Amino acid sequence: MKSFSIEDINAIINGEVVGETNKKITGLEQIQKATENQATFIGNRKFAGLWKDSKASLAIVNDNIDIDPGENRVFIKVKNADLAMAKLLETFAPDNLHFEVDIHPSATIDKTAKIGKGSRVGAGCYIGKDVIIGTNVTIFPNVTIMDDTTIGDGTTIWSGTVIRERTVIGNHCLFHTNVSIGADGFGYRPSDDGRGLVKIPHIGNVVIGNGVEIGANSCVDRGKFSSTIIGDGCKIDNLVQIAHNCVLGRSCIMAGSSGLAGSVTLGDGVIIGGSASIKDHTTIHSGATVGAGSGVMNDVPAGKTVLGYPAVDSREMLKQWVALRKLARQ
C-alpha cells in the first residue's frame, strides 16, 4: 500500500499547508466517503459545508475558500484543487497491468509489420500487413490493427479496439476498450429502380493527431474520400460517434453519447455536451460550446454558446425556458 506524509504530498502539488496531523495518507476518496487515512478535495464552496462531517485527515482546497481544517486535520491550499488532485491521482494510481512477455506468442503479426523498441503486444492481437508501430506502444489483448496503419510512439490501445486499414495515429494517444477507428461511413442512396438502397463506398482513411484520447465504445468513421481528422489533444468520451470526413481542430472535447454527422468541422477548443447532435456539413467555430442534449442545425460562430433543439444562442434559449415556465403557471 502506498503511504505518504503531508510533506510528501505537498512536494507534489506545491501548495500552502494549513494545520497539522500525524496521519499518513494511503489513498484518495470523495469527501463523504473518506476515512482518516485518506485525502479528499474541495474545489467549490458548495462542498465546504461537508468538511465538518468528513473523516478525512487532509483536504486539497481552493485558496479562495475560507474554512478552518480543525484539530489534527490539514488543508493544502492551492489555486486549482481539481488540477492538484489530478497530480495526486497519478501518484496513487495502481501499477500498470503486467505483461509476461513483450510480444505474446498467441499474437498474429504479419511478417511485414514493424514494431518499435519497447512496444508490447498482448495475447490474441492481430497486426496486419505493413503496419508500423512506434516505440513504447502498449497494445492490450485482443486488439486488431489492419494493413498499412501507422501508430506513433507511446500510444496505448486497450482490448477490443479495431483499427481499420490505412489509419494514421500520432504519439501518446489513448484508446479505451472497444473503440472502432476507420469503419465505413454511413452512406446510402436510393437505387435507380426505387426498390432498394445503394451503398456508397468509403475509400478514405482516419488521421488522428498527438495526445488524443478516445473513450470506450466510440467510433470514428473513415472518409468517403480524403480523411476524417481528429486534431492534436482532442478528448472524446465514451459512446461518441464521429462520422465520415469530419474534421476536428485542436483540443476539442466531446462528452458521452454526442455525435457528429458527416463532414462536420469543429474549430480549436470546441466543447460538445453530452447527447448533443450536430447536423452534417455544419461548422462550429473555435471556442464555441454546444450544451448537452442540443441539436445544432446551423453554423455556430466562434466563442458562442448554444443550447436547445434546434440550438440557438444560450441567452435566447434561457429566455424561452423562463417564458414557458411562466405560461405553465398561468
Rank of each mutant, 00 (worst) to 15 (best):
A34R: 06
T135V: 07
I272Y: 09
P105G: 09
I9A: 02
G187C: 00
L307S: 11
I76C: 04
K224Y: 09
C234T: 11
V207D: 06
G15C: 05
G249C: 10
E71Y: 14
T26P: 00
A48H: 00
V270A: 10
V18Q: 11
V143H: 09
A183S: 12
N238Q: 05
T167I: 10
S275K: 06
D299C: 10
N205T: 07
S277V: 15
N10H: 00
W51V: 01
K129R: 15
P301D: 14
G70I: 05
Y309V: 07
N64S: 05
L260D: 12
T228S: 01
I76L: 00
V207C: 07
I214R: 06
G295V: 12
T91H: 11
H202A: 00
I9Q: 03
N37S: 01
G291E: 11
K87Y: 10
V264W: 04
G269C: 14
I236T: 11
G43C: 02
D313T: 04
I67V: 10
D237W: 14
I9C: 00
F175R: 02
C252I: 07
V198S: 12
I133N: 04
N238L: 04
S3N: 11
N37C: 01
L266T: 05
I127M: 09
I208H: 05
S257L: 13
G185C: 04
V247S: 10
V101M: 09
I229S: 04
I127D: 02
K87A: 10
G196M: 06
V247G: 03
T156C: 10
P310T: 13
T283A: 10
E90Y: 10
T228I: 08
G70S: 08
T91M: 11
H285G: 04
G256A: 15
T40M: 01
W321Q: 11
L174N: 06
D313L: 01
D153H: 07
G27S: 08
G273E: 02
G233Y: 11
V312E: 14
G293I: 13
V312W: 01
L58D: 00
I31K: 09
H285C: 08
A107D: 13
D193R: 06
V306S: 08
F75E: 07
V137N: 07
I139Y: 02
S294D: 00
R222N: 03
H98C: 05
G233M: 03
M146E: 15
V220G: 05
I229Y: 05
H244V: 03
M254G: 03
D130F: 04
I103M: 14
